[in-house]
Every structure is written in structure tokens, then in C-alpha cells.
Design a protein around this nucleic acid. Structure first.
Length: 619
RNA sequence: GCGUGCGUAGCUCAACUGGAUAGAGCACCUGACUACGGAUCAGGAGGUUGAGGGUUCGAAUCCUUCCGCGCGUGCCA
């Protein structure tokens, strides 16, 4: 017997109803039975309900209520739920189920283990998760928030579900833009300036100016031709284009030097790499995202594989030449996937193909999931299509790996447009975090004036990160969402701080209990007494943890676990209000409630940990 | 144009993937032994789920036609 069957009442009910359905409707293919046991939305419909009768009735051509009655007649829920009769059949054939108090207590008791009822899969899978994906010489900005936070959460969800997870950060460390910055640094060195203590901020400036220098003027030129301008301005512009062309030429030859392993170029590149990654990984750490150096898989690491892949696709007639470029056509997609430019250069599609190959063949991924902006949907459709066509998705056992684009929407500002910094540019991620921390600090100081600064600092940091991450994770990821400090940092309502507050109250109860000499340790073995509706509601909320976690991990949807966490915190708050724990003369009830508090706290903490949200003891 | 996604309370979002009377949070109104942390709890008001049609016992969810918005769209990543 596995843990799942014991701790999750819905799993227990699933078994009993399956048996009843087989007996009640023998003509129905047992392998197609879906018992459809769900938690009831309203208490008056019981604790759980079975919605299977309607669907089965349709397929076997019977009346739904007739099927429901047959199921009930063949049903044995002894030891789990109150006896179920025809009176429990409602509407078109819903079967309402109310758990026995002792069964509820037993389930809770079984869940109360270090594993917290999460089943360990018989055959763990390997899930490769594409996360973060920063670019050299560029600061992390809002655009990286979601790929980092969501990607890490998806990784954690699958780790918690018992799978092997391999994070891969596809670092943009290759190509012309980087060569431009390398060239810039070398020019500086040649003019006698030291670049030893260069910062990422400075690199970022170089990156932008190099970009503009090499192509910005061309667009300006086009605009002038199109809309007309003073001849002098035009002449000046053309002069600058000559400059730009020269710069572009230098950058391209620098790229060649870099790619062919020129020592000096590589050394400068390495410095840029180190400077960028040191700062970005620090930001990841600050975000409580488990993304470290070992997860970095830069585009440069694929450079020696690209030629082989392209040759392979050509020799197998998967790729074809078209207008000088090399393309692969994928069924159902109009736009072909370009894997080599007319000038012989490779594109990011080529690199991504190499990445898929590595992730399936070398990293042995059963699933390769990409936490990447939804605007890249077409790109991934193409690349996945090419990979399948070429068989790069085939695992060693010959079956196909599951390629998933876990797409997410854009972060918007209050004006409904993509989020910008106050000055209008792209907002640097660390600045955003700083502002959230400042605000959290002020709030904590206001609510809790006695707390010393030294204690408040780290707490404000955790509260701010929790607020930002919860806001990001709790929405359905595919949708755009509005980034609003006031809303996410509000200590009321469906926010990160509210969840932390629930934990703080639990911690506080135990602090107080221990101070007054109550045997909290002993209470951890106390029998659960769940007589008050609020106690029962809290128990039912806790018991939903295993199912919710599995559903969220399988669907790569962290927002489901967020909803669970909020529901749990909210159920706890109601319980806290109605069921005194310490101000309670009944020793048995007190012990039960202490244990319930402890379990609720551990489950909530575990859920938040699985989302990558930091927690605190006080706030 | 084609492709793709979205449209739910005044605002921000859910809806266990086709289930019962569409739920939360802000904001608004009314309450709660001076509170085991009130950063809370209980209640009220707030809806033709963009519009029409279809599928069925049952639709916010699936199909279809419109409307509106976003995004992508052959040699950037």
C-alpha cells in the first residue's frame, strides 16, 4: 500500500467508487472509468462528490440517476464516509459524500509525516527545466523575473513530486552582440584604459551603445529618406552610417576571432562572462531561486555541435536550401524554420535544436520544459517540430520525450503597457527588488515598531521577495499581469504577506505555549478532534495538499499551488478566530488543536517552499 | 492577410480542466467578549462570463461566426 491511498480521502473514495461502478455497470469498460471524485464546493453538498454517473450514463445509454442509484447500491464506503443512500443523489446524478469524523482524523494522522502525504512516484522521471536565460553584458530586468521565478517554481514542483530535475539556464553568451562588447573593451584597452574593474552596469552601457552604433543609424537613415529631412542632416547621417558599417565590420571580425579561439578575445569574453554571471546569480539567490553556476548552459557550449547538426539534417534531406538559406519545413506551420543564414551563420533555432538534443540524449530528459515568454511560441513550435522530424526527441528507449513550452505572459505597468522603469527604460530587476524591500521595511516598521532594525532587515527582504513572487506565481502564467507594488505588498487579502502572516501566527502560538510550559511536544501525538466546522474545514484543506501538488507539477502550473496555499492560510485564519488553542480548558482539545496548527504550518511552509517563496518566524 | 493568445463584479484575478446557485481579494457598507499577533474574522451589496448560434442531462470551459485588444509572422536573440 502506498502513502497516497492512506492520506488522501479522495484516493480512498476513488477505489471504493471504482469497485462500485464495475459492479453497477458491468458493460462499461473498466479501463475507461473516471470516478471523478472532487472536493465539494459547498458544505451542503458534503465533503466530496462523485460526478461519474452522468458521463457513464451517456456512454451506456441509460438515465444518469439510474446509474447513480446503481452505483450507490453497490457502494461500500464503510470506514470512510457516512452510509450513502439514494437520498445523497442530487441533481442529474451527483453523489454527495460526507466523511466519517474518525476517517478524517485518520487521514490527517497519516498525512502527518515528513513527506506530508506526497506520494513518491514508482518511476521518477527526469524533467529538464529551461530557466532564467540571461544575456552577457546585460542586467537582469523585469523580463527575466518570470522565466526565473516561474521556471524555478516548476522545477521545485517537480522535485517535490519526486522527480529528478535538471535546471538549464540558456545563457545568451554568443553571437554578434557579445562580439561588439568584446571589441569595445579591446578598443578601450588599446587606448590605454584599464577594464579590470569593469561593472555590469558599464558593460550594459557598452552593449546598448554598440547596438545603436551598428544598426541604429540605419533605421534613422531610412526614416530620413522616407519622411524627408534637411540635406545637411542626411549627409551627416550618411557619414555616421559609414562609421556604423566600419564598426559592424570590426564586430564581425571580432566574432570570427572569438569563435576561432583567439586568446585575447576569449580572455576578454571570459571577463564579461564572469562579471555578468556573478551579478545575475546573486540576483537569483536574492530571489530565492535555486539557480547557480552549475545550471548555466551558455549558447557558446553548443558551438561545436551546430555544424554536425546541420550536416545531419542536410544529409537526411530534412533540411533544404531556400533562397540561399537552409530551412526545415514542419507540417502545419507555414513559416519554415531557418537553421542557417545565407551568410552561413547559425541562428538561435540551431542552438535550440542542439539544446534539445543534449537535454534528451545527454541529460536523459523524459520531459523538456521551457519557461519562456509566450511571444516565443512560434519559435518553439518550429524547433519542437524540427526536433521531432529529426528524431532529436527520441530517448534511449526509442520513445519520444515530452517537449513543453510553459509560456508566460508579459508583466504590465499600471498603464496597461509593458512594464517600464519610471524613467521609461527597461526596469533593472535589482532596482525593483530594492524598492519592494524599502516598502516592506516601512510597513513592518509601522506594524511592529518594537522590532529592532537588525531583525527587521532580513524580514523586510523576505516579505518583499515573497510578495513579488506570490504576485507573479499566483496568476495563470499564460496571462499578462499588472505589476503593482501597493497591491502585492498589501498585508490584506490574497498576497504573499498574508500567507507569511498565517505562519507567523502559528509560530507565535507555539512560542507562547512553550513560554507557559505547555507540553507542545506531547501534543504532536494527540488524537485529532475535529468537531468545530472550522477545524473540519482546516483539516479538509490540509488533505488537499497531495492532489493539488501533483496536479500543479504535472501541468506546470504553480498558480494552482498558490491557490491552495491561500485557501489553507485562509482556513487557518478562520480556525484561529473561532477555535481558541491556548485559551482552552479542555486539555484533549488543546492538544488536538496544537497538533492541527503544527500540521497546517508545516504544510503551508512546505507549499511555499515548493513555490520558492521565503518564510519568516516573525514580521 | 495569416497564425496565435486573451476578453469573467467598478478594479485585480479564480473556477479542481464539461459539473450543482460562476468564486476570491481590493474598494464600499455593517458587525466582532480591549484580541493565542485586529497585518484578522463574520456578514452585506456588487454578474446576461464581449455578442450571436451550435453540441448535451449540464458550457466561462468544446465547435462555429462576428466584435474588441495583445502578440508573432523567412535569414536578431
Amino acid at each position: 500500500m502506498n502513502t497516497h491511498t492512506i492520506t488522501d480521502p479522495s484516493a480512498l473514495l476513488d477505489e471504493r467508487f471504482r469497485a462500485a461502478i464495475i459492479a453497477a455497470v458491468p458493460e462499461f469498460d473498466p479501463s475507461r472509468i473516471n470516478t471523478s471524485i472532487t472536493a465539494s464546493r459547498q458544505p451542503k453538498f458534503g465533503d466530496f462528490q462523485c460526478n461519474a454517473a452522468m458521463g457513464i450514463a451517456k456512454r451506456v445509454g441509460k438515465q444518469p440517476r439510474e446509474v447513480a442509484a446503481a452505483i450507490v447500491a453497490n457502494l461500500d464506503v464503510a470506514g470512510i464516509a457516512s452510509p450513502i443512500t439514494e437520498a445523497d443523489i442530487a441533481g442529474p446524478g451527483f453523489i454527495n459524500i460526507t466523511l466519517l469524523p474518525e476517517a478524517l482524523a485518520a487521514s490527517l494522522d497519516a498525512l502527518d509525516s515528513p513527506q506530508l502525504g506526497i506520494p513518491i512516484p514508482a518511476q521518477p522521471k527526469t524533467i529538464v527545466v529551461d530557466v532564467c536565460g540571461v544575456n552577457l553584458a546585460k542586467q537582469m530586468h523585469v523580463g527575466h523575473l518570470r522565466s526565473t521565478v516561474l521556471g524555478d517554481a516548476i522545477a521545485r514542483l517537480n522535485e517535490r513530486a519526486g522527480h529528478r530535475v535538471k535546471r538549464q539556464s540558456h545563457v545568451g553568451d554568443w553571437g554578434l552582440p557579445i562580439a561588439m562588447v568584446v571589441e569595445k573593451l579591446i578598443e578601450l584597452e588599446d587606448s590605454g584604459k584599464s577594464t579590470d574593474t569593469i561593472t555590469l552596469d558599464t558593460l550594459n552601457t557598452y552593449y546598448k551603445s554598440a547596438q545603436e552604433k551598428c544598426k541604429g543609424e540605419h533605421t534613422a537613415h531610412k526614416a530620413i529618406i522616407k519622411y524627408g529631412s534637411h540635406p545637411k542632416a542626411l549627409a551627416e547621417c550618411e557619414l555616421r552610417i559609414e562609421d556604423a558599417d566600419a564598426a559592424m565590420k570590426r564586430a564581425k571580425s571580432r566574432l570570427v576571432a572569438l569563435q576561432s579561439g583567439d586568446q585575447r578575445s576569449v580572455a576578454v569574453w571570459q571577463r564579461i562572462y564572469d562579471t555578468t554571471m556573478t551579478e545575475c546569480l546573486a540576483t537569483c539567490k536574492r530571489l530565492n531561486a535555486n539557480i547557480t553556476d552549475e545550471h548555466s548552459a551558455g549558447e557558446s557550449t553548443y558551438r561545436d555541435e551546430l555544424v554536425g547538426i546541420v550536416d545531419d539534417l542536410v544529409s537526411r534531406n530534412i533540411a533544404e536550401e531556400d533562397d540561399g538559406a537552409l530551412i526545415v519545413r514542419v507540417d502545419g506551420i507555414k513559416a519554415p524554420c531557418i537553421i542557417r543564414k545565407r551568410d552561413g551563420g547559425f541562428l538561435y533555432a540551431t542552438t535550440d535544436l542542439a539544446a534539445i538534443k543534449r537535454r534528451v540524449e545527454k541529460l536523459e530528459g523524459d520531459t523538456v520544459v521551457y519557461s519562456v515568454d509566450s511571444r516565443q511560441a512560434l519559435h518553439f513550435k518550429q524547433v519542437f517540430g524540427v526536433a521531432r522530424k529529426a528524431g532529436y526527441d527520441l530517448k534511449s528507449d526509442g520513445t519520444q520525450a515530452n517537449l513543453v513550452h510553459a509560456a508566460f505572459g508579459t508583466i504590465m505597468g499600471d498603464d496597461g503597457k509593458p512594464f517600464k522603469s519610471r524613467s521609461g527604460g527597461t526596469a533593472k530587476l535589482s532596482d525593483l527588488l530594492d524598492e519592494a524591500v524599502t516598502r516592506a521595511n516601512a510597513s513592518v516598521a509601522e506594524k511592529n515598531p518594537d522590532m529592532p532594525d537588525s531583525e527587521r532587515g532580513p524580514i523586510a527582504e523576505a516579505v518583499a521577495i515573497a510578495a513579488i513572487k506570490y504576485a507573479d506565481l499566483s496568476n495563470e502564467s499564460i496571462k499578462d499581469y499588472v505589476f503593482n507594488f501597493d497591491r502585492m505588498l498589501a498585508f490584506e487579502g490574497d498576497t504573499g504577506p498574508y500567507l507569511l502572516y498565517a505562519l507567523v501566527r502559528i509560530s507565535s502560538i507555539f512560542r507562547k505555549a512553550n513560554e507557559s510550559g505547555i507540553d507542545t511536544k506531547g501534543a504532536m501525538a494527540a488524537p485529532f478532534m475535529l468537531n468545530d466546522p472550522a477545524e473540519k474545514a482546516l483539516a479538509l484543506a490540509i488533505l488537499r495538499y497531495p492532489r493539488t501538488l501533483n496536479g500543479a507539477s504535472e501541468a506546470f502550473e504553480p498558480n494552482r499551488l498558490c491557490a491552495f496555499a491561500y485557501d489553507l492560510a485562509s482556513s487557518f485564519s478562520s480556525f484561529f478566530d473561532k477555535c481558541p488553542v491556548l485559551h482552552n480548558d479542555d486539555a484533549a482539545s488543546q492538544a488536538s488543536r496544537l497538533r492541527l496548527c503544527d500540521l497546517a504550518g508545516r504544510v503551508l511552509r512546505d507549499a511555499l517552499g515548493t513555490l520558492g517563496i521565503p518564510t519568516v518566524e516573525r514580521m
